[in-house]
């Protein structure tokens, strides 16, 4: 019996992988919004996740927005049509892009819902995710101070031929002209691989 349970814990299906990845984005985006002060800190509450204390928004509007985006993202993760998720931080006053958090997503296209589950312990995946989120928190070390009021936007890059859902619109990439780039850690569920990176305005 124990052996069977063990096997179930270490195997991962496409659906489970999509679940894990979209959950990571939920916490990851919340962490960015908190760390970078895009929403007031008093609108966040603490939760324990991945063995860390993370802050999650309590703002209802923001929650609904994030949930909608993540639901859609999960569908695309299942279809394996998503390539990137980007969190863009823009100054409200000047409309200038100040920061760009890019998450490259690699999907294993051979995997289908019915194929045999892959083997990777959940603990290992969670540890990798933990390391990524820790780096997001630690990035204050080098990121510039956001001194003005900022807003954020989520961009999702998908395969070209994908039908755009009604609530979504096509957008430009919102690049930063002269930017400094820092690669962060990555994690993999063995079906989806996520590479994190942050770009910010150059010091001079």
């Amino acid at each position: 019996m124990a052996g069977v349970l063990q096997a179930a814990k270490n195997s991962i299906t496409l659906k489970g992988s999509a679940e894990i990845v979209s959950e990571f984005f939920s916490y990851g985006i919340n962490s960015i919004l908190y760390q970078r002060g895009i929403y007031p800190p008093e609108t966040f509450s603490r939760v324990q996740k991945y063995g860390l204390t993370l802050l999650v928004t309590t703002d209802n509007e923001l929650k609904t927005y994030l949930n909608n985006v993540l639901m859609q993202l999960k569908d695309w993760l299942l279809d394996k049509t998503v390539e990137k998720l980007v969190v863009v931080v823009t100054s409200i006053d000047t409309q200038e892009v100040l920061e760009r958090w890019q998450f490259d997503i690699e999907c294993d296209k051979t995997m289908t819902e019915d194929s045999k589950p892959r083997e990777k312990p959940l603990k290992e995946i969670n540890d990798e995710i933990k390391a990524v989120i820790r780096q997001i928190t630690a990035s204050v070390t080098f990121l510039p101070l956001l001194e003005e009021n900022c807003s954020f936007d989520l961009l999702i890059y998908t395969d070209k031929d994908l039908q755009v859902p009604e609530t979504w619109e096509e957008s430009g990439p919102h690049f930063i002209a002269k930017s400094e780039e820092v690669r962060l850690r990555s994690f993999s569920t063995s079906i989806h691989k996520v590479d994190a990176m942050v770009c910010y305005k150059n010091a001079d």
């Binding site: 630690a138 080098f142 510039p144 101070l145 150059n202 010091a203």
Partner: peptide
């Protein structure tokens, strides 16, 4: 590449950001 993460407590954040 990740040495900054190990010594993050020893780095004073700069207003204009740091060059990695």
């Amino acid at each position: 590449e990740n040495s900054w993460e190990l010594s993050k407590e020893n780095v004073q954040p700069l207003r204009q950001g740091r060059k990695i």
